[in-house]
Nucleic acid binder design. Structure first.
Lengths: 159, 159
DNA sequence: CTAATATAGTTCGTGTTATGAACAGTACGT
DNA sequence: ACGTACTGTTCATAACACGAACTATATTAG
């Protein structure tokens, strides 16, 4: 039987495989990393953290309550409170009590937030467009469809 | 002329567009988010943070120096020091001085690290496979090729 | 060979991100 | 009116990430 706690010894690798020939799933992981990096770089250009930028991007289509926002961003409510706090302190975002349900705060962009949010959003889209390079319309649509299906599957899996 | 600093007023959105019909670039952002979430969930199942899991996954093919690791993970060296410190404290990873260059530390997995690293890796791949659903070989290859090209483009862009 | 420079990592101080538990207020069904 | 569910905050804690300053080793120039 194997024991879980090992002495701190290095273990030599089986075979140092080079970067060639990666599978689709691995490619997806790498791609995700690339997208995150792009997001981070563009955000930094606008003096935002990646998370703040994500937040702003989710608000450009209109105010959203904390709970919905938490679901969108996959954050615990306490995490979101902090994120919104900092964004509010920077004047990017405002909390407004809902009229219909006095528990909920509607989070909306200030005009500063809208400006920097759309700028970041557009920047990210543009950079991703560059990375995509030349891609004809059929492939673009097929790709979009495939990804959309994956996202839907992930959404399903969440119940 | 517009001034950068605005009073903290909410700005009403132009048009609350629903989730239908998103562009490819946006789909990529969402997909990236999904992949990150999967990574986080699987990591948590193995009592790892997403970053620790990323670290381990980068080491399964053999030891890597801190500098290379930093480039792989896109981390400043000071950030990486902390990440490796915590991983080492958990017995997942070991630092070994290189024989040829006595400045560099080779980071290698312990057998614990190898085990949990491959388990996490396999888990992520499996979950992504589920999300991909049925996909015939030609499309799979086309998709892999497209993504690989994007990754290469990103690598290029970094100089 | 020595001096200058570059590279590998760490340490330290600071700020951000993320979580869970405990809590307060509001809505809603019975 | 009561219990329950939901919305959001506070608090304590930990991981994460960065830049500047620093040590030590390697490399290059003269």
């Amino acid at each position: 039987m194997t024991h879980t706690t090992e002495s701190a010894r290095a273990v030599t690798a089986p075979g140092p495989r080079l970067t060639d020939e990666i599978g689709l799933e691995t490619a997806l992981v790498r791609l995700s990393h690339v997208v995150q990096r792009v997001f981070g770089e563009v955000s930094r250009d606008h003096d935002l953290t990646a998370q703040q930028a994500q937040l702003l991007c989710r608000l450009v289509d209109g105010p959203v309550g904390m709970a919905d926002l938490g679901r969108m961003l996959d954050l615990e409510k306490s995490s979101l409170t902090g994120l919104v706090d900092r964004a509010e302190k920077r004047g990017l975002v405002v909390r407004t009590r809902s009229n219909t349900d006095r528990r909920v705060y509607q989070i909306s962009l200030t005009s500063d937030g809208l400006q920097v949010g759309t700028a970041t959003h557009d920047g990210v889209i543009a950079r991703l467009g560059e990375l995509l390079g030349d891609i004809d319309e059929p492939e673009r649509e097929q790709l979009t469809a495939r990804i959309t299906r994956m996202i839907a599957a992930a959404e399903d899996h969440r119940r």
